Amino acid sequence: MRAVRFLDGEFTVGEVPELPETGPGQVRIAVAACGICGSDLSVSKDACRFVEVAEAGGYPLAAFDTERPVVLGHEYAGVITELGAGVTDFAVGDRVAGIGLATDAATGIPTIIGYSNTYHGAFGEAIIVDACWVRAVPDDLRLDHATLAEPLHVGEMHVQQSGLTAADSALVIGCGTIGLGAVVAAKARGARMVIASEPSPRRRELATLMGADIVVDPTEQNLIEVWNALVADADAGSVVGAAANGILIAYECSGRAGILNELTHQMPFNSRIQVLAAGFTAETITPVVPQFRRIAVNFGHGPYQDAYDITLRRLAAGSIDAEAIITARVDLGGVADAFTTLRSPQDHVKIIVRPGLSAD
């Protein structure tokens, strides 16, 4: 099948080895569309570092042989072409999207498609995934729009894990697709105030469109200072207290080096930091500072429920403007240039790869 191979920092279009047989509990999908994820950008920047961190962290889902080619892409949508044994919830021809996980039949170890030398990602004509992670796409939702459920649901998942209530306020730092998902989720769950910070003018516009109450350009304003000014204007009292009237939760979606240390020094007492987009470089913080300030830092721990399904329903209902988030579409031949463009994302948010099947 045709796909975009990645090896040694280069993308090439051509024939790749066929996928494994569709195993029990799996489905084969003809890919209609796939979004380029921030993790894909991290691989393209330094695949060895990506795998090194995954292996050091005991995370086999994203470990592969960097000396062999991979086909990236896991934000997929498409049409089922084959069912593995035991799959009864779907039929051939169903329009689907979902989480891109496939369990290797030989080892029993799951892998994220695209971060595997065997289970190709969706920058190609077909994928195989475990059916338990697949969802039917509603009839009135375009398949290329459905690909957004995967990155946007990360925001919903982390907002749930953060324990945000209607008494709390949210700071969303970085308004790529995951950050926009956090804005949507915080607003949907009734946050008192949602303030977003983003240097890209286009992404700031989208944050407003997704419901942010205030949007800040961090090159001109300090996000915490904006919040402190709001508190002072509201005569809300001291930032040192029991937080009985709600707290401030920062959703770190930028992955910027040094941001975690800055937040631990600047966030109000009794606040929280929820890390959605973590970097791959080592960070230095002074642990006693968040301890002094009673700041909780969460990298993704805690319960959540139906985050992907909730997001897919929001897309189908039109409460998320999917077309505004998708800023370009490319075929397989345009993948290399798309990655180059996204490394300086002033004009883009989400670029969708379409291997050839209609995305309607």
Rank of each mutant, 00 (worst) to 15 (best):
M210N: 04
L260K: 08
P201C: 01
E225W: 05
D347F: 09
P201H: 06
R49W: 09
D140Q: 11
R272I: 07
A212P: 00
V330A: 01
L171N: 12
L7A: 04
A277R: 08
A250T: 11
A62P: 07
V79Y: 07
T66E: 10
A131H: 02
T177M: 10
E55D: 12
A56W: 10
L83E: 06
E323V: 14
G57W: 05
S238K: 12
G114I: 07
L230V: 14
H145W: 14
G181N: 08
R343E: 15
V353S: 03
R135M: 09
T107E: 09
V92E: 06
G302Y: 03
I259Q: 10
L7D: 03
L276M: 15
G302F: 02
G211N: 11
S319E: 14
G78W: 06
A250R: 05
T264L: 04
A102M: 05
V275H: 08
S42Q: 12
R189H: 13
P60T: 02
Y119P: 00
I285D: 00
E150M: 07
L223P: 13
D347N: 14
E125N: 07
T22E: 09
W227A: 03
P151K: 00
A136K: 14
A232Q: 15
Y308L: 02
A47G: 06
N270I: 02
E52K: 11
G35M: 03
A91N: 01
A336G: 04
D217T: 07
A182N: 07
V297Q: 01
A47H: 08
A188P: 00
A97K: 02
L209D: 10
E52Y: 12
V134E: 00
V137S: 08
P60M: 00
I247F: 14
